[in-house]
């Protein structure tokens, strides 16, 4: 079990997809980065919060049949590498989608869901999962 602040401090990004935009080059980063790998030292102090739309396209996907401890009982579930429309990539679960239906190139959008429970006495953690975009 982990102390709650470890998860609490990531809430802006995981609940609302708040990433970072480099004011120097305009590149958008999600998950958030504190230094832009293009502008490097020039970007220090120049990374502003940027809310992503949460829409994107499946670049690759897998169906997890052997899950990690906190996800036992949920298998099989789809995990995907998603290219967000802002150009940055993210790893996330795709829900409400049959595994026969998911495909590379499929449009998806982020939705707010429960991710896991940290044991019986631990906190419940939330974040983004993706659904097929209608």
């Amino acid at each position: 079990m982990m102390a709650v602040p470890r998860y609490w401090r990531e809430i802006p990004a995981r609940y609302n997809l708040i990433g970072k935009r480099c004011k120097i080059c305009g590149n958008i980063y999600f998950p958030p980065r504190s230094i832009c790998p293009v502008c490097r030292r020039k970007s220090v102090g120049q990374m502003e919060d940027y809310k992503l739309k949460g829409t994107g396209v499946v670049e690759s996907y897998t169906v997890i049949h052997v899950p990690p401890p906190h996800f036992e009982g949920e298998e099989p579930y789809i995990m995907a590498l998603i290219k967000l429309d802002e150009g940055t990539y993210v790893t996330g679960q795709i829900v409400e989608c049959d595994e026969k239906e998911v495909h590379i190139g499929m449009r998806v959008r982020a939705t707010f869901r429960k991710i896991m429970e940290d044991g019986e006495k631990g906190a419940i953690y939330y974040g983004y999962k993706f659904v097929k975009e209608e």
């Binding site: 897998t62 052997v66 995990m79 991710i115 999962k129």
Partner: peptide
């Protein structure tokens, strides 16, 4: 990655599918 349910075989599976 792992927080959202990704596993090690899962990451290589993404590369395999790609």
């Amino acid at each position: 990655e792992a927080f959202f349910g990704m596993t090690f075989p899962g990451l290589y599976a993404l590369m395999a599918r790609y």
